[in-house]
Structure formats: C-alpha cells, structure tokens
Design a protein around this nucleic acid. Structure first.
Lengths: 362, 362
DNA sequence: TTGTAGGCGTTATCAG
DNA sequence: CTGATAACGCCTACAA
C-alpha cells in the first residue's frame, strides 16, 4: 500500500546518511569515496532495491542508450531476423532497441521516424519505402543522429548493410541463360514501395540483355493474389511463353510452385522458379527451392556494428555489400521444350481439364 | 556547423517572446492563450522545427509511453508476428515498443527485464523461460508495472494471451486415435526452457491415456539435430514402432518429413506427422502440413489490448484462451499397417538401401 | 491570459 | 573525500 512509487538516488543518500552526489559517485564507481561511506551507500542501495532511472540519466547525459529501428514488418522473417541480429549486437554494448514497423507505408515511415527522434534515440537502423526523400530521415541527419540503413542498395549520405540486389539478380539471369531459358518473368510484390525489388528487376533485366535474352516480363501482383494459388495461377496463365520465373522473394517462389501444381505444370520442367532471400524452409521443401541465399541476421549485425561506430563518435564508412550465394535447388532445370507454344504438362497429365477451368476449381 | 544540438521549448518561447509555460500550453493545446500569442508560438515552433523531447516529458509526467517486450527470439516467426501485432495495436495509442530477446535463456530474461524496468517502461509484454519464478518479473509487479504474458498458459498473478496448449495437444491425440494410430511420439526442442512445449506434451500424454493409447514417446532433440535431416533421421530410427509424430512446432514437423523422405519412408503412410503453430508455409508445401493452427499476431494484439487496459489504470482480466483449429493436411492418415515391426516403405521402394546406410549418405 | 518557480532523477561542477 | 547546486526538457501549480 504505502508503496513509494520509485526509489531514487535521493532515498539511497538519505538512508546512507550522505549527499546524493556521493551516492552517485559510489554507485557509478566514478569519483572516490571512503571505503566506509562506500559500504554504507551500497548497503542502502541493496536494502532499498535501488536501480537507476534511465530516463533521469538520459536527460542529464543526453544519451538514451536507445536505438530506433524502423522496418516494413516483423511478419516478414527476413526483417525479423535482421532485427534479431541487430538487437543482439547492440545489447552487448548496452543499447536497447525501440522497434516499429510501417507496414510498407511511406507516410507511416516518416511518422515513426519522427516519434523515434522525439524519443531521443541515439541512433537509427532503417529500412523504409523511400529513404532518399524522407523529411524525417533528413531531420535525423540534421540532428547528427547516426543512421545506418538495412537492405537498401547504397544511397548517397547513409551507409547501408545490404546485399547487392542487382548483382544477385544478375546471377539468376546467368543461371537461367545457362540452362537454356529465354522467355523469363520477374514476379514482384509491392514493386512501387520496394527499391529492393526494383533494383532486383533492373539487375535481372540488364543481365538478360547481356545474355541476349528477351527482356523479362514484369509481373506485379497483390498480396491477395500471392496468397491465393488459384488466382496466382490465372496470372501465370497470362504468360504461357515463360519457362522460368524469378520471384522477388522466396514466399512468392513457393506460391508459384503451388500455383503451377494446380495447373498440372511440373516444376522445374514446365516452369523453373528461383526465389530470393534464402529462407530456411525453402531448403526443407520436398522440392528444395533454388534461390539467392542471403543472411539477414548478419545484415542486422553489420548494420548494428557500423552504427556502434557512429554512436561512439566515429565516422561510419560505406559498407561493402554482404556476400550472397546461389543456392542450388530442384526448381531450376532446362526447360522441357524450346517451343514456347507447347502444350506443357499435357503429356504428363492428359486427364487434366483445360487450364482455365482447372484454375477455377482451385 | 553552428547546429544548436537541440531545440527546446525554451527556444520556442524566446522566439515567440513569451514564457515557456505559455509555449507549453499552446503547443499542448492545454490551458488557454490569446489567439495572437498562440499564433506567434506556433509560428516559432514551426520555424525552429521544434519537437517535444519525450525524455523530458517522461521524467516530468512519469509516463514513458513505452512498453517493454521480451520474447525468446525474433528469429522464430511465431514470436515475431506476435510482436508485430502488439506493436501495431500499441502504436495506435501512442506507445512505442522496446524489444529484446533472450535467446531462450532464463538469466538473460531477468537481465533484460531489469533493464526494461530501469528504462521506465509503462508496461510489459513477456514470453520467458520461467515467469513463475522470476525476480525481475516480481519486481515489475512490485512497482505496479502492468504486465501481460504471451503464449504462456495461465499463471497465477498475470494475465496471458495464449492458446490452450494442453487442449490443442489433446486434439492431436484424438486425431491420431481416430486414424488408428497407437504408438506415437512427441518431438520436442528446448523442452527444458519452454513451458509451452511441456504443457503440450502433458496435454498430449493425458489424452493418449484417455484414448487408451500407449504413453507417447518423448523425443528431445537439439537445434543441430533439428536442422540436419540425416541426424534427425537417425534419431527417428531409434523409434521404429512409432506411426505418428506430434512435433512441438511446424518447423520440426517439416524437418521430420524431410528426414522421413531421406529414409525412404512415406509420409503419411509410413509415418504421420502433425505440427504446431500453423505457420503459413506449411500450407504451401507440396504435402500440406497437418497442424494446430494458431494466430500469433492476434495473440500479440490481444496481449496489447489487455495491457492497454492496465496502462489506463484498469484491472486486467484473465484472458480467455484464443481459439485454435486443427488444420487438416496431407501428412496425417491411417498407418500403413498395424504391425509395428513391419519393414515400412520396403514395398514401395525395394531398391532403397538399408536404413542405416541410407541415413549416412544423407 | 500570462509568467515564474519548483520538481521529475541524474550527474558534473565546484567549493569546502 | 564530500556535499550543495546547477543544469537536462518539460509540465503544472500558483501568482500576477
């Protein structure tokens, strides 16, 4: 009942019979004190169950020991893992992470950054829709709040822990070419709000050109389409000439397989599929997914380490892209036939109803 | 260069030619002010790009508008989604989330809680190893910091957003029984540090008994074993009598399938598998996973909403368990044979080498 | 309507 | 070695 809400250093000082300054020195092991008062203070602190208030400290020291972290969503394991890595790294140095997600919305991005800045974060870890043109991010810069991006390809002004999206995508194009694919597609979700996705497409298209392949087809889909195999199947049917699809992330790639199955197409013979990210489950699928394997947790770690340098007043260098690997899987092979108008899959499952109706029954 | 580090309300007051109290009133739309000074203050604030310091406010108001969130790991999508849901819900009311993960370690749990408390969080959202016996959690209670657990089955003293682990597990036992399985196994990871896992096992075992099935076999594995199909296969081989396995989460369930494939066992005929959680990819697998479907994001939301009540001084009621559903999949069927010592899979793939050697080549 | 003053919890400064 | 005291940024009486 008589619970004094909070025990402050004042209480400790009083209990120890000394001034607050002395108590502060003892408890912080700064300054010096006679072993006698030291003892009394420590005893009092223990008895009272004293703990410093980080808020009071922050106000006085102008350091909140808190880092703000903005990402699109924790529901995407790629971002969640990056945050996990960053959090571990920062905690070692005593920093806590204030996490917020924008749900891929540019306005929310700015609102969150503003709030984070108001909370006096000492640094920022950011993945957002449009970092190049964010008033809030500029404000962070103006206030000299060290900031490190994550996932974004290099941008003037901020370091970014990233994998070269264009180069990784180019690797996919080369693989496709090597296997004899010509008509390819790039399946994208939230193309408008993801520079990562756009950069992947650009890199993919450029390398297709370099490999003398026709320009890849850009297929943009909505979240609903991605989550409903039958609808996705319809969308794929609009591009019967494609023999290989590069999905902008692994979930989409898996969805493509599902949709293909629905239509009686065989992956990879009828349609090859390659993903991006390299999430763990891709490897556990019956038909392990060919994909670009990245290491989001390492990305978060790298971002955190760089930020730590900035936090200590150092200069944050531009970051070398993290390595990626092409994970070989069972979803990429040579196309069944070079003839684009072949009635694919028919030989395998002659009993399958016409595609359109089949799609509808999905 | 001449960047004054921070613009405070004092600066605004000076620029507007008035006292700080007036500026505060105007900017907070509390108290009243002549429309004239109001104008001047707002103008000044805009010109200077003023923003309140949450730290100063927190110190003064004794409200940090921050909620601490402790979970085992963001690398587990189940927790990540819960945090996502909670974050969205809390942001609506102006709260930010301070997130930290313990990596399933009980000591770290306490360290983190202590730090969070020192940061003056207004409330706590917690999933930890041992909530019943945590000094830090008790301290939170002592300080009257509203706390809501997540994922834990009801515990005296704290509300918890959860699914009834025992009941869900019982449902699996009933399904197994209905399909004619008798010898079953429960595959667990981190059994010692997860009351969720233990409660699932207890519920499963109890219902097996109720269904007149032999007691289920408890198979504990390490993370390494879980991630290496060939090793997991070896572990499974130690229990040739089992026809059905209940995995304590979906990832394990998928791993079991992988391991089974490696040995030439057919899922579900040779071995039925049911998971827990209901992660999205389970549905996208070639062989959709039978599992207990839960809604982690809703759990996070519920926890946040309850916490919000506590944050507003209300009484936090005990929470009704969230509903779960048994997701029918292709990994559960009647066992191929009732005879436990049948050489399973042999009929299907006579060319498969003996199990042991097959395992090793994995 | 307005401004002054005190205090939230800490620490750094500066006399004793 | 020790203890007032003045910030840190803000808000809320209390006065004017």
């Amino acid at each position: 009942m008589a619970n004094k809400t909070r025990i402050t250093i004042k209480d400790v000082a009083r209990a120890a019979g000394c001034g607050v300054a002395t108590a502060s020195r003892v408890l912080n092991k700064s300054g010096s004190a006679s072993s006698e008062t030291r003892e009394r203070v420590e005893q009092a602190a223990r008895d009272l169950g004293f703990a410093f208030s980080a808020t009071g400290r922050a106000l006085q020291s102008r350091k909140s020991m808190t880092v703000g972290c903005l990402i699109p969503s924790l529901a995407n394991p790629v971002f969640a893992e990056a945050v996990q890595g960053a959090q571990e790294e920062l905690r070692k140095e005593g920093y806590q992470l204030l996490v917020a997600s924008s749900n891929y919305d540019g306005e929310t991005d700015n609102e969150i950054l503003t709030t984070l800045l108001a909370k006096d974060v000492d640094g920022l870890l950011v993945t957002m829709v449009d970092p190049q043109d964010s008033s809030a991010l500029n404000m962070a810069q103006g206030r000299n709040v060290p900031t490190c991006l994550m996932f974004h390809d290099p941008l003037p002004g901020w370091p970014s822990a990233h994998v070269s999206n264009a180069e990784a995508a180019a690797e996919v194009a080369r693989r496709f070419a090597r296997y004899g694919h010509r008509r390819t597609g790039f399946l994208a979700l939230r193309f408008a709000t993801s520079d990562r996705s756009r950069n992947r497409f650009d890199g993919f298209r450029a390398e297709c050109a370099a490999q003398n392949l026709p320009a890849p087809e850009l297929i943009e889909i909505t979240e609903t389409e991605a989550n409903t195999p039958s609808i996705l199947a319809q969308r794929l049917c609009e591009h019967p000439e494609l023999t290989a699809i590069f999905a902008s992330n692994d979930f989409l790639a898996i969805a493509v397989q599902k949709a293909a199955n629905l239509m009686g197409w065989h992956v990879p013979q009828d349609l090859s599929v390659v993903g991006f990210d390299g999430i763990e489950v891709g490897r556990l699928l019956d038909r392990p997914l060919a994909t670009i394997e990245t290491t989001p947790e390492a990305m978060g770690r790298q971002a955190a380490q760089t930020l730590l340098v900035g936090l200590q007043g150092g200069e944050m260098a531009e970051l070398t892209p993290l390595p990626f690997t092409f994970r070989v899987g069972a979803t990429l092979s040579t196309p069944r036939t070079k003839s684009p108008d072949d009635d694919r899959g028919a030989a395998q499952s002659p009993s399958v109803p016409p595609l359109t109706s089949n799609v509808k029954q999905g």
